[in-house]
Simulated scan of single mutants.
Amino acid sequence: MSALINEKIWFDKTVYSDAERHYYESLSKRGNANLEVGSSLASEVAKARQHIKNSLECMESVASLAGVPNTEINNKLISLEKDNADLKKALDDLRKLVISLQARVESLESPSGAKAEAPKPAAAPKKAQEPEDDDDVDLFGSDEDEEESAEAAKLREERLAAYNAKKSKKPVLIAKSNIILDIKPWDDETDMAAMEKAVREISTDGLLWGAAKLVPLAYGIHKLQISCVVEDDKVSVDWLTEEIEKIEDFVQSVDIAAFNKV
């Protein structure tokens, strides 16, 4: 080996030749790929140009049509605007009517509204309210005139008395409420008929019991649903529920299912 140190010999030439061949082959493959990409880009550019051309032609046709007046479309637009205005006016009228009806119902349902709707007493006879005219008094009149005035005064008093008696006999508006109560027993062994009988035995002025029925709850347990009408000034709902809850042998609890003014 020492004899070959100074010799200029390329022992690895085949290795470098193979490397050079592989290098040029890779360059050739890259060139083909670039050619394919270029052709695909060219086709995409051509498609984009054609699409732009078609869009411009379509816009030109639309612009040409827009310049032509269409009487039928204008008439339809005017008709639609008129119908829209009519519908809006009808809707506003309907809204005002609903608001007025709601205010009317609220005034009737409120206690103050009930009092306001109470019938007013009839006006007293016009002749009874009209004062005597002092100008017609004859200071030098005869006894017959005095008798006539006395009879007129008596007749007026009689009419006033009859009117006051009629007014006092007019019925007064009584505020009442319709209540539906849910009365729950202790268990499924509670005698519901006996419980209803005990509830109906609660009696006072202004309380009237109505219909009753059994409503299933769960596990064979039923609740007693009973209705009643009470006068608000005479019977309190709290008092009524307390009286029912005093029936401890049957009643577990009492709930108000519905409460309406009559």
Rank of each mutant, 00 (worst) to 15 (best):
A3M: 10
N6P: 02
N6E: 07
E7S: 08
K8W: 04
K8D: 07
I9P: 09
A19I: 11
R21F: 15
R30L: 04
N32Q: 04
G38C: 00
Q50G: 07
H51T: 12
H51A: 10
N54E: 12
E57F: 11
C58R: 13
S61A: 15
S64P: 02
A66P: 03
N70V: 03
T71E: 08
I73H: 12
N74K: 07
L77W: 06
L77H: 14
S79K: 00
N84R: 14
L91T: 11
D92A: 07
D93Q: 15
L97Y: 04
S100C: 11
L101D: 02
L108M: 08
E109P: 08
E109S: 06
A123F: 15
K127P: 07
K127Y: 12
D143R: 05
E144W: 00
K154M: 14
L160N: 14
K170H: 13
V172P: 07
I174M: 14
A175D: 05
S177N: 11
P185N: 00
M195A: 09
V199N: 03
I202L: 12
L208M: 15
W209C: 09
P216I: 08
A218I: 14
I221Y: 00
I226V: 08
S227N: 06
S227R: 01
C228E: 01
W239P: 14
T241P: 02
E245W: 03
D249A: 04
F250R: 00
V251L: 04
I256E: 00
